[in-house]
């Protein structure tokens, strides 16, 4: 748990440093994701890494975080109690943004994915 959390936080920290020093509009956690991906690539190829960095714990920590991701949105969502006034005054427009643009976004993305994957079929596809 500890080594897993340390590695994940370290990736995010380096991401933060990267975003701050380069002034690029990249979110630190996304840079951290790329770094952790690179770490997994390296780990499974090179045997010389210290034992603690090769432990399964890192995978288990990541698994837990991903599995419980929905919970992590609750505190920000409860923030709605703070903005009830402005939301109530614009309730129809805000609901339209939340429902209509999200439905549009899902539909457009899924259609584009399907259309393009028909033009460029994956080499060996198991559709299941």
């Amino acid at each position: 748990m500890v080594v897993g959390l340390a590695v994940v936080l370290l990736c995010q920290l380096v991401g933060e440093i990267f975003a701050y020093t380069t002034h690029l509009p990249v979110p630190a956690p996304v840079v951290g994701l790329v770094l952790l991906f690179g770490f997994f690539l390296v780990r499974d190829r090179w045997e010389w890494l210290p034992f603690s960095l090769r432990s399964e714990e890192i995978d288990k920590t990541c698994e837990t975080l991903v599995q419980q991701m929905a919970l992590l949105f609750v505190p920000a969502g409860v923030g709605i109690v703070q903005r009830l006034g402005i939301l109530e005054a614009n309730v129809v427009g805000v609901l339209a943004i939340i429902v209509v643009t999200t439905a549009f976004s899902i539909a457009v993305t899924a259609y584009t994915f399907r259309l393009v994957s028909r033009w460029f079929p994956a080499p060996t596809e198991s559709e299941e």
């Binding site: 959390l5 994940v8 936080l9 990736c11 995010q12 991401g15 979110p27 630190a28 956690p29 996304v30 951290g32 994701l33 790329v34 770094l35 952790l36 991906f37 770490f39 997994f40 690539l41 995978d59 920590t61 990541c62 698994e63 975080l65 991903v66 419980q68 991701m69 919970l71 992590l72 949105f73 609750v74 505190p75 920000a76 409860v78």
Partner: peptide
């Protein structure tokens, strides 16, 4: 109180590297 949970949003995004990998 809820900040302890909220803070983990960043690490959880980083952790998506695992299923991706």
């Amino acid at each position: 109180g809820a900040y302890f949970i909220h803070f983990l949003l960043g690490p959880a995004t980083v952790a998506l590297a695992l299923p991706l990998y």
